[in-house]
Design a protein around this nucleic acid. Structure first.
Lengths: 181, 181
DNA sequence: CTAAAATAGTTCACCTCTAGAATTATTCTG
DNA sequence: CAGAATAATTCTAGAGGTGAACTATTTTAG
């Protein structure tokens, strides 16, 4: 796209910050997936466990909303976690149509592992930066996220691309989330 | 993962900068895909066209290396672009095993469109930041990319996850690339 | 109070994308 | 020249996910 001659120290050279962001985001996702894989989880699994840890008793429908996933997708996700004894379905006594999803004790243990993994992940990804730079970057990214309405995004369906599962990785902080590829 | 009570203004609250990075990267990839889709291209198509614009005559094998893709993948990519008249295969006269890939005139026109798209994309993604902040972010991301060896990554196979195609979007500057969700 | 609409979950058929093995043609090496 | 290496291609398989149709249950309307 740009002749080699323009690649270095060219004032007028178009920036590629947005592409860099995509690339680094992909690296971060990929490395996180590596880590969760080591304990037998996909990033989607991790997202579900995290969410159920923070909002026990959620129904599949509501879980689907929070993850930005389709209900049928949640079925297989929960099926798999239930088979592994990490999550249990409890029929709601007030509305027998839906389930109340809970982490089992094993699930809670995995959740604790996941916290450790998240910390290591954070440290690994940000390793090239100084402490001040990390703060700086965090502030900039938060500003970007707000600017792009990442918080509210949780409730709408993010167009699945390559990277689709990324939304489930999504970190629903007080509210947040997104999607990939 | 973190109890609601910890979510706001908690000094010891673990940061999620790495996750934010993943999420924003996914947003950026997704929006870029939206833009290329409007001119009938996937992000992978765009990556190929960009690369052939800057390195005409490349063989499929070398293209695969630069994209971090597998040769068979490149076949279908080029097939599709050739069918649309954007790329042409020319048998190398010196080594009849391989092709020399070139953009057609139509392909070059598309490349020009792509440049415009990239600019708009850059502007859209970075819109929430001031000019100084954009510079700041750019510096931080470059440092991160260097720290994670993103430049050399081009030559090794990036584990395909969700969002796999992202690598092809990768911007092989003087050298770069990657893959994600 | 009952028929119809809505809701939660599930199943299933189908799609897209891509990796990886096997195959052919050509060139290089000893 | 024989055999190893290389470029491209084909084909099979598998992961991952969507959306439509179906069942059970609850809510709403007349």
């Amino acid at each position: 796209m740009y002749p080699e001659s323009m690649d270095l120290a060219t004032p007028g050279r178009p920036k590629r910050t947005a592409f860099l962001l995509s690339q680094l985001g992909a690296v971060a996702s990929s490395r996180f997936a590596d880590r969760t894989r080591e304990i037998g989880l996909t990033p989607s699994d991790a997202g579900v466990i995290r969410l159920l840890g923070r909002a026990p008793g959620l129904s599949q429908r509501r879980l689907a909303d929070r993850l930005g996933a389709v209900p049928s997708r949640v079925v297989s996700l929960i099926d798999s976690l239930q088979e592994r004894g990490l999550v249990e379905r409890v029929r709601s006594s007030t509305d027998r149509r839906n389930y109340e999803l809970h982490l089992t004790d094993a699930g809670k243990r995995v959740l604790r592992e996941l916290r450790g993994i998240a910390e290591q992940h954070e440290a690994e990804i940000l390793a090239p930066l100084t402490t001040e730079q990390v703060t700086q970057l965090g502030d900039l990214l938060v500003q970007l996220a707000n600017g792009h309405g990442l918080d509210r995004e949780l409730h709408r369906d993010v167009g699945r691309e390559r990277g689709g599962a990324a939304d489930l990785t999504a970190d629903p902080g007080p509210e947040p989330a997104i999607g990939p590829r």
